[in-house]
Computed example of a mutant assay.
Amino acid sequence: MFIRAYLRASTQEQNADRAKESLIQFAEQHGHRIAAFYTENVSGATLHRPELMRLIAESGEGDIVLVEQIDRLARLKQRDWDSLKQRLSAKRLSIVSPELPTSWLALDRKDETGFTDSILQAVNSMMLDMLAAVARKDYEDRRRRQSQGIGKAKAEGKYRGRQPDIKRRQHVASLLRTGHSYSEIQEILGCSRHLIASVAKEQRQSEAA
């Protein structure tokens, strides 16, 4: 049994690696080490996730998929969630999350008869489905409120679109000028490589002007 951690953030401005250390600690608390990490910045509402598909393809039967929160996987439409569950089930992969104690059973398989394991797996499956439904509703509610807010702002002539985080970009620019690498800046600021590359491009264009 290998533990494979899946890390996902919704946008390029967020850092999907943020939860890496907490998952390492969680695994160690249960006497395990994480064998591999799969990280990507992609919307939780889509099943088009290359790293998640690579995780499933590289997994052996009975491996663990470790996520910080269930919504890292499950913020999907019902049809896509059912499709993902089928892919996981085909290899008997178990989803484990620190926020779902019933899922921790997969980390401690000591029941010789398998009866208790089967019962708790069934309970865990129901909990996963419930959390997936909640995650999807939360996503849709936030999108609806966002759309309503934008519509109101447009009607009042106040909408300017998404604004860049100027202070964060200034910090990135300062670290680039002092010779810090992309990886060092990610570690210091917890930002994405996409953001660093964007700031670096602006610097090059400014210097060439």
Rank of each mutant, 00 (worst) to 15 (best):
I95F: 08
R87L: 13
R92G: 07
R92H: 14
N41I: 02
T39M: 00
D82I: 14
T46S: 14
P98C: 07
L84Y: 07
S89N: 12
L52Q: 07
L84V: 11
A57Y: 04
M53L: 13
I70E: 05
V96E: 00
R92C: 08
A74N: 13
L73K: 03
S89D: 14
A74P: 10
D82F: 11
R79H: 13
S83K: 15
R75Q: 13
L66H: 00
P50W: 01
L55A: 01
W81F: 15
L76D: 07
L66N: 00
R79Q: 14
S89A: 15
L93Y: 02
S59I: 06
L100T: 12
S89P: 01
A57D: 14
L55N: 03
R87H: 10
E58A: 11
S94E: 13
P50Y: 00
L66V: 02
A57T: 05
K85V: 03
L55M: 10
L88H: 04
I70Q: 02
S83G: 13
S43K: 12
T39W: 01
R75N: 10
T102A: 11
I64W: 06
A45M: 12
P50C: 00
D80V: 09
I95W: 03
R87I: 02
L73A: 07
S83V: 09
E61A: 12
I64V: 15
D80R: 10
R54L: 07
I95V: 15
F37V: 03
L76N: 09
A36H: 08
E61I: 14
I56F: 06
D71L: 08
R54H: 06
E58V: 01
Q86L: 15
R54W: 00
A74F: 09
G44F: 01
